[in-house]
Computed example of a mutant assay.
Amino acid sequence: MSTNFTYFADMSRKGIFSGHIQAMVYDRSKPFNSLPLLPPTGIEEDVDILKKLVSSSRALASVDGKVQRLPNPSMLVNTISLQEAKASSEIENIFTTEDELYKAVSDTIQEGQASPSTKEVLRYRESLWEGYRRIQEKGTIDLDGIVAIFSKIKNTSGGIRPPHSLTVIRRGQSEFRAGEIIYTPPRGPGIVEHLMANLLDYLSDKVDPNTDPLLKMCISHYQFEAIHPFPDGNGRSGRILNLLYLVNKGLLNHPILYLSKYIIVHKDDYYHHLAGVTQAGKWKPWILYILDAVEQTAKLTNQLITNILEQMESTLEHGRETIKWYTKEINELLFSQPYLKPKLVGDRLKIASRTTLNKYFSELQAAGMLAQIKDGREVFYINRDLVKILEG
């Protein structure tokens, strides 16, 4: 213990763990053990950042207000989180089709038969809910919670990568100079743990308590990705951490922000600005990028919610006019996920009779509210209106 303390004290005296913005000579093939502690300085005074912070905060608040008007926010959060899970996994080059994903979440048996890529996407959503549950229970973000998110994403019992692990980030096989090292995260006895402790102090306001939470999210997202605390799954863990932090600080009541879609569209900029902070201390472009991601994503999410709400109202009106047993509860169930199986409806409505269920679904089909598809012996019912909105 004394050895580590002396080591970190020496690093601090040399300015290696200072929070100052500075250009650094950085060898990408060597561990970035000179990663500065948080907070950086001289950011909040920037006029461009302050202006963007105001517009992003307003957009985010509008999303949260709209979600609160929903009769069952968890239903919609569950649907949108599936899209976020898919998009976040695509950033890491993990691809699955909407069709396969929707089939997998419609039934736990089908999920067990899903492809490895689809299972990874589903684990992302499970990790999001695990983190959300922990925040509701503890009221804070801690290391155990972050490790739990990673463990669920990667389906492992592992945690912080050990100091001897030669973890490096390389260019993808489809990129120019494939295999080239583009970043080597910090490593060594106690280094990652020290950096994570500082990050958690920053998130909990033990450090720099007066900085706007949305600005802190931008800064802490870079720091988490630069620390790269896990052997794998850091990108997805970091994007979940963004949402959970916004929830923890009361900027969102539910983890409903489709941020990964923006990053996919502007993926090159994302990695370019990450590298800019690492190599030259260029915080401003990175912060403006993330704030714009929040603002544009909030607007898209707002429109998505509006479209779903309008479609739900239209479907409810049509259902009541054409099916005598159709209710608001059934209408919400039809919009709980894009693909449905009779068993789900039966369990929710406590209908044990298969004959009755078949009759219900036949009437829903006849009314044009669901469409049937078969995959081998499996039968699914698709809410095509919801699918069209989600994939639009």
Rank of each mutant, 00 (worst) to 15 (best):
I308P: 04
I227S: 01
W325N: 05
D46T: 11
Q303E: 11
W325Y: 07
F230K: 01
K249Y: 08
S88T: 10
I43D: 02
V387A: 13
E100K: 00
N93G: 06
Q68R: 15
P229T: 12
A85C: 02
K282W: 08
I181P: 03
L122M: 11
L334I: 03
I49S: 01
D347I: 12
L386T: 02
E180K: 06
K52R: 14
L300I: 06
D347S: 14
R69Q: 10
D292S: 11
G19Y: 01
L203D: 02
G346Y: 03
L60N: 04
I91L: 04
S174E: 09
A85S: 11
F32Q: 01
K374S: 04
L304Q: 06
K299H: 05
T315K: 11
Y222K: 07
Q311Y: 03
F380K: 11
K103G: 11
R187P: 07
L246G: 08
K14C: 00
H194D: 05
G392N: 14
H266V: 06
H228L: 12
Q303L: 13
H273N: 14
K374R: 12
Q113S: 06
Y124V: 07
L304G: 00
L241S: 02
I351K: 13
T167L: 12
V247L: 12
R354G: 01
S74Y: 09
C218M: 14
N33E: 13
E317R: 13
K324I: 11
D208H: 02
D269Q: 12
L316H: 05
S56T: 10
L35Y: 03
K249C: 10
D268E: 15
Y102M: 13
L316W: 07
K51H: 12
N198I: 15
R348S: 09
E321T: 00
T322D: 04
K282S: 04
V168N: 09
L37Y: 06
D205Y: 12
E378F: 13
S204Q: 12
N72L: 12
E90Y: 06
V379I: 11
D268Q: 13
Y222A: 13
I389N: 07
P162R: 15
L82H: 05
P186T: 09
M369T: 00
N198K: 14
I146W: 15
G179I: 13
A23D: 14
E363P: 09
Q279C: 04
T297S: 10
S34V: 14
K119Y: 06
F5E: 10
K359L: 14
S260P: 00
S18E: 09
T301H: 08
E225K: 06
K51T: 10
S174M: 12
S314N: 15
K261H: 08
Q223R: 04
S56R: 08
L364Q: 03
Y326E: 08
I91H: 00
S106Q: 04
R58D: 07
I80K: 05
H273A: 12
G65D: 03
I141G: 03
K52I: 04
P36L: 12
K328Q: 15
T355K: 01
A59C: 04
V67M: 07
Y381N: 07
L274I: 13
A178N: 00
L252S: 08
G131D: 05
I146E: 00
F176P: 00
F150K: 09
I373E: 15
H20P: 09
E100R: 02
T211H: 04
R133C: 07
D385I: 01
Q83K: 09
I323P: 10
Y270V: 01
G190L: 03
V147P: 02
E321A: 07
Y258P: 13
R58L: 07
K324H: 11
A85L: 06
